[in-house]
Each structure stands twice: as C-alpha cells, then as structure tokens.
Design a protein around this nucleic acid. Sequence first.
DNA 1: CAGCGGATGTGCT
DNA 2: GCACATCCGCTGG
Length: 202
Amino acid sequence: MAKQISEEYFNRPTVRVARELLGQTLVRRTPDGRLFRGRIVETEAYLGARDLACHSAKGRTARTEPMFGPAGRAYVYLIYGMYACLNLVTRETGVPEAVLIRALEPLVLDGETVAPTRESWCGKPLPRLLNGPGKLCREFSIGRELSGLALTRKNGLWVEADEPVPPRRIARAQRVGVDYAGAWKDKLLRFYIKDSPFVSKK
DNA sequence: CAGCGGATGTGCT
DNA sequence: GCACATCCGCTGG
C-alpha cells in the first residue's frame, strides 16, 4: 500500500513542496467509485500575499479562504467561467501559499490501467490528455466542491508518495499566464520533469 | 501548424 | 465593465 502524503509534508516552504511533488501520484476517487491516478509532472508555486500572481495577494475572500487554512488541503477555483484548477495548500494557517498542479502523466483512469505503451484513452492521445490544469481537473472530475477539503483518501482526493525525481531531471521556468503580475511574472516558479512528454509547455 | 475568439463564474473597480 | 493561474474549435496557410 502506497504511503499517503500528510499535512506535515505540505507544511514546508512552497518552492520545495512544488519541486518534490514531481514524480508523486495524485489519486482521485469519485463519489460514484471511479478511480483516477496520475503522476505529477508539472507544478507551479504561488507564494502568498507578496506574490502578485497569487490569488491570496488580492485579499481574503470566500473563494480563496482555503489557502489561508492549514497545509494539505485542496484549493480549487474556477477560471474563465468554465474550468477548475487544482492547488494543494502549503504552509501553516495564516500563510496563504499553494502549489498549482499543471500536468499529470496518466497511470490509471476509471479503474483501467494505462500501460506506457498505450497511445490513447477514449480516443485521446495520452500525452495530451492531462497536460493542463483545466484539463486534468475535467478528466479527474475535480470541481469546486472539493475546495477546502483535506487531501485524504476519505475525501476522495489525495497524494501518494512515489520515487523522487532527481534535481538534474527537473526544469525551472516562468509561470504560465501571469503577465499582469509585475516582477513576479518572470520568477522561475514553474517546475517540470525535463524529458516528460506529458507536460503542458516546454 | 499558428492565430483568433467564444464560453462565462468570481471578484475587483 | 473588465480581467482572469484555460481550453477547444475554427480559420487560413
């Protein structure tokens, strides 16, 4: 049985968590019993009140409330009226930081094992199935109803420990879609597995 | 392949 | 009203 990653793991410096989440497994069990598993291959760190790209920098609202809570919870928000994006909350209560999950390598979808050799699932090429924050939430059936919940098996969304990715295989880049964030738009707070075909952007 | 625009909830001005 | 941590279908080359 794989080890479930705990609140203490997330209650650490956000950049560190964003790097170390690469290679770990995100698991989703829907209320109707469907199972989805994906290897995290791309993340972004959002560094709270000082980070102009971070939602919590613009204040504390009902939407952003989960980021202000304890580590190890989900913060799910809606973007452009249509798409959900999943963040995993880091740091202690009152420090509103989080890691955005940007891309996954499909492992198990709806109870069906996806072998590395298989090229598609339900007609979609595997490398493009979960390569974006909105897409992976749609495919894993992750919505706003999960925002604020602890990342536990019981809540149907959790992370399992897997092989760490060695630093030489991790690339750093600017975050996507934060051009409005002044000096913060250029900071290298996006992390991805260099050779992975499953990332959203090189 | 690149580029454009539509869909449209939330929180700001 | 406007911008937004997005995606997809359509267009033209």
